[in-house]
Amino acid sequence: MFGDGDVDVRDLARRVARLEAIQEIERLKYRYWRACDSKDPDAFRECFVREGADIDYGSGLGGFDDREQLVELYSKLALRRDGNRWLYNDIHHGMHPDIELIDANTAVGSWTFWFMRVNLADGVVEQASLEYRDRYLVEDGKWKIQSSHVTPLTGVNFPIPEGANVAPGPAVPK
């Protein structure tokens, strides 16, 4: 294709657009996890479609058919404080994305996910790994999460040792 001077510009433009869409979807998922860790309900909300969300986070958190239900639970947990300290500090790490574009406005993807929470409310550290299976839609010109289902893989909880130095977590949102 490139060796003989006949470059198919339309095919090249289509392939670049595909790569850009995949990159935008990956950035969306990273923004979602970053919003979780930084305790930012507004950024968290903006990762999902306004209506028609299909979220299933399993027996631990449950299912949701509306982003506002999910944002309400997220805020209730993530923003819980005891005086000047957060009761839950999370670390979300997603990796191994496999994104497939269905068309210009629809995609599906799967991710391997590692999670750790310092849970001061219960005095434990929680670790888990999961598989995410997502569906993405373009809404108002931006990729959003329409559907997200998780399958648990591994998990372990252990007590925070007496006298452990626990960092304060993220700054309080303004």
Results as ranks from 00 to 15, higher is better:
154 T>G: 11
168 P>L: 05
149 H>Y: 05
103 D>R: 09
47 C>E: 02
174 K>Q: 15
161 P>F: 05
78 A>E: 00
169 G>A: 00
145 I>K: 01
30 Y>M: 11
24 E>N: 14
153 L>K: 15
58 G>K: 08
158 F>N: 11
69 Q>A: 10
59 S>P: 13
10 R>C: 10
90 D>P: 00
97 P>F: 00
2 F>I: 13
43 A>D: 03
86 W>N: 04
42 D>G: 13
68 E>S: 09
75 S>K: 12
142 K>Q: 14
18 R>C: 09
53 A>Y: 01
27 R>C: 13
22 I>S: 12
145 I>Q: 00
91 I>K: 14
29 K>D: 07
11 D>P: 10
32 Y>W: 14
70 L>S: 04
129 S>E: 01
153 L>A: 14
9 V>C: 12
72 E>I: 09
94 G>K: 04
144 K>V: 05
168 P>R: 07
74 Y>K: 04
106 T>H: 09
147 S>C: 13
36 C>P: 11
2 F>C: 10
70 L>N: 04
31 R>Q: 12
145 I>Y: 00
47 C>H: 05
88 Y>P: 03
43 A>K: 02
143 W>V: 03
44 F>H: 01
94 G>D: 07
114 W>A: 08
105 N>M: 11
156 V>C: 10
140 D>L: 06
156 V>E: 11
10 R>L: 12
41 P>I: 09
3 G>P: 08
29 K>S: 07
26 E>W: 09
80 R>Q: 14
50 R>A: 15
130 L>M: 14
153 L>F: 12
34 R>H: 14
65 D>F: 00
86 W>Y: 08
83 G>M: 13
103 D>K: 08
22 I>N: 12
37 D>G: 01
131 E>S: 14
152 P>W: 03
86 W>R: 08
158 F>V: 06
85 R>E: 14
128 A>Q: 03
113 F>C: 10
65 D>P: 00
46 E>M: 14
93 H>I: 02
171 A>K: 04
85 R>N: 13
159 P>L: 07
32 Y>D: 04
109 G>A: 03
108 V>D: 02
113 F>I: 05
27 R>V: 07
77 L>D: 11
45 R>N: 03
122 D>N: 14
124 V>E: 15
146 Q>C: 10
97 P>I: 00
79 L>I: 13
82 D>H: 08
98 D>Y: 06
78 A>L: 01
55 I>G: 00
45 R>I: 06
85 R>V: 15
135 R>P: 07
20 E>W: 05
111 W>K: 05
102 I>R: 05
11 D>C: 11
110 S>V: 03
60 G>I: 02
71 V>M: 03
26 E>T: 10
36 C>M: 15
39 K>Y: 00
128 A>E: 01
67 R>M: 10
27 R>M: 13
129 S>H: 04
1 M>W: 13
26 E>P: 10
1 M>L: 14
124 V>P: 12
83 G>Q: 13
72 E>R: 15
73 L>I: 03
35 A>I: 03
80 R>V: 10
29 K>Y: 11
97 P>A: 02
172 V>L: 12
13 A>C: 11
131 E>P: 10
99 I>W: 02
155 G>D: 08
28 L>K: 01
154 T>E: 12
107 A>D: 01
12 L>R: 12
67 R>W: 06
9 V>F: 15
72 E>K: 14
21 A>R: 03
101 L>E: 01
116 M>A: 15
71 V>Y: 02
123 G>C: 04
69 Q>T: 07
65 D>Y: 00
134 D>Q: 02
160 I>Q: 03
